[in-house]
Simulated assay, not measured.
Amino acid sequence: MPADAPDSAPREHTVPVADGVELWARESGDPTGTPVLLVMGAASSGVLWPDALVERLGRRHRVVVWDHRDTGRSTRAVDVAPYELRDLATDAVRVLDHLGVQRAHVVGMSMGGLLTQLLLLDHPDRVLSATLFCTGALAGAPGGEGLPGPHPDLLALWSRLGETRDEDAEMEFRVEHWQALAGAVVPFPREEVLALERGAVAHGGPADASSATAHARAGTSGLARGAELAGVRVPTLVVEAPEDPAYPPPTARHLADSVPGARLVTVPGMGHALPAAVLEPFGDAVEGHLDAVDAAKP
């Protein structure tokens, strides 16, 4: 590396967010680039973001991932210090504050997409752009009546999240869960998923029943704010995953319609997951959105 080149080596942080509650965070990529905050879904560590996506975005951006409370290396909190899901959105702001980031592109998946919407409503000055995928609009957004819910097979799997399993059985369950989430169009990359989950276990230790259901047991007050999305002015991209069994079509279209000026892009074959087979078109959509916003900002 030339002497004057920026140091792109990953940098880990411990971020205090409440009394006795700390979060693990990691930044990587170009430290001089526009920050990108990746917000993962429920019960999921930040290391579940695919390395290929993090590295791609890191070519021109400072990429930040972190472990929500009750995941990875962050504090197991819900049973000793109960919290609301909306507190996880405030955690995102605390992570930005700790890293000295004033504004960031925010990319949210699943529950992370709901948290990103809360950031758009409560902290728009901290969000350069938003990318929402595998998620739906906050409750109360007009036109949301009658949208389909999660597939029954997926609901059946979710009912088993709190079961106690040995290490091998737990890994098999996680693979089964990801297979259901990924849909049936894109070939399921079993070994890729196994490697990803083994990496998550190496990072944060074996999952227990409490951690697996922590976010399902967190408070849900203050989330019925979908009508407020009509006031959002932050550039927003919604990526539709047509094979998503958790947020099936036309959920993404409804979300895009709920945010003024939001652009909808469909990634064919994509389910509620980011296997290698969809990373190129998904990455193209996200990078194009980030580049357009970066080019337009003062």
Rank of each mutant, 00 (worst) to 15 (best):
T213C: 02
A212N: 07
Q179Y: 11
G219D: 06
P206I: 12
S211W: 04
R263N: 10
A218Q: 06
D257H: 05
P260L: 09
A214T: 11
L223E: 02
A227M: 01
S221E: 06
S210Q: 09
L181N: 05
R225G: 01
D257M: 03
G205W: 02
A218E: 05
L196M: 11
P260D: 07
G222C: 02
H254W: 10
P242M: 11
A182D: 03
L181W: 11
R263F: 07
V238F: 05
H177K: 09
R198N: 07
T220W: 06
A230W: 12
V232E: 00
R217P: 07
F188H: 07
V193G: 01
H215K: 12
S221D: 06
A200M: 05
P206Y: 13
H177G: 05
E172R: 10
D257N: 12
D208V: 15
R198L: 01
G183A: 08
V186T: 10
A230F: 11
V232P: 00
D244P: 10
V185M: 03
L196P: 02
S210W: 14
R263Q: 15
P250L: 05
G199Y: 00
A184R: 15
T220V: 13
R217D: 12
L237M: 14
A202L: 01
G205C: 03
G204S: 08
H203L: 02
G261F: 14
A212D: 04
S211V: 12
A169Y: 14
V193F: 05
E191M: 08
E192S: 09
M171A: 07
F173L: 01
R233W: 08
A218P: 05
P249K: 10
